[in-house]
Amino acid sequence: MTKPILKVENLTTQFLTYAGIVQAVRGISFEIYPGEAIGLVGESGCGKSVTGLSIMRLIPDPPGKIVSGSVYLDRKNLLESSEKEMRNVRGNEISMIFQDPMTSLNPVFSIGYQIMETLLLHQEITKKQAKEKAIELLDMVHIKSPEEVINRYPHQLSGGMRQRVMAAIAISCDPKIIIADEPTTSLDVTIQAQILNLLNDLKTKLNSSIVLITHNLAVVAGLCSRVLVMYAGLIMEEGTDMQIYNKPMHPYTWGLMKAVPKINEEEKERLTTIPGLPPDLLSPPKGCPFALRCDYAMQICFQKKPPFFEPQKGHKIACWLMDSRAPRTKRSM
């Protein structure tokens, strides 16, 4: 087995607010292997974006704070690196594509300038070479007539094109890992399909790893080979795409799967809802955070946080139902 390229251990990120401490990420661990795409899935407020930002050390401090844990990139712990070292990592080894292509580009600089900025910062090349590379990158993300586009400003491009430019910046220094935080959420489906195809292309061409952060399970299905399902700052289930989609074991994953209508459904089925709301992260419940909304909750679920059970290699489930003492439930999707 190859060695993981990024190892996140017990990552805990909190936000100090007037109301109290928001425990956004509550000690999660996972690994990313070279050249793989993993999906980080969950609803808003589950901590998926904060996880991405924590890896990049982009959590605004204050109010945010990475309280404990480690993020190993090769042998280096990013959480103990200096700001200067981090600047070398960001954009160069790990880069990020943000959700909103409308606001994540600087409106007063040309597209070319913004791509060249990253290149000039991280690589020892001349401006002329950087410009050539910028054109090459735009071509790689399938932008037509890149020589013209580099002189344009963000407002002159459509949302899909801006997201491509973001992708071009992200891949400019051949990063080992690309973190894509909801890269298609604000785009139309046809444009979403273009961007997903592009990410898939880049993955094969550059052999980079991709972390796709999204709330859309369907988007993950086409791109990722491993999926992490997050809820209330914790990982609920982790597994390969087949394990998660074909044999999900966590009641929360079942709920998520059944709550979205499938476009290929034959007969109209009533959507299954997850009753209630996610817990308040100011004072998360003692036991399993999903217990209050779970149809299968047992006494222990309210008292003790479930450990990870691993019934199959690589398929981890944080649920007491997996314990051998739990009553056999009909685990159907």
Binding site: V189, T190, V220, A221, Y245, I263
Partner: peptide, 16 residues
């Protein structure tokens, strides 16, 4: 046709 095939399906086998 393009619109319908652009909608992703939450099933990796079908999707890939």
């Amino acid at each position: 046709q393009a619109l319908m095939t652009a909608v992703p399906i939450p099933d990796p086998q079908a999707e890939k």
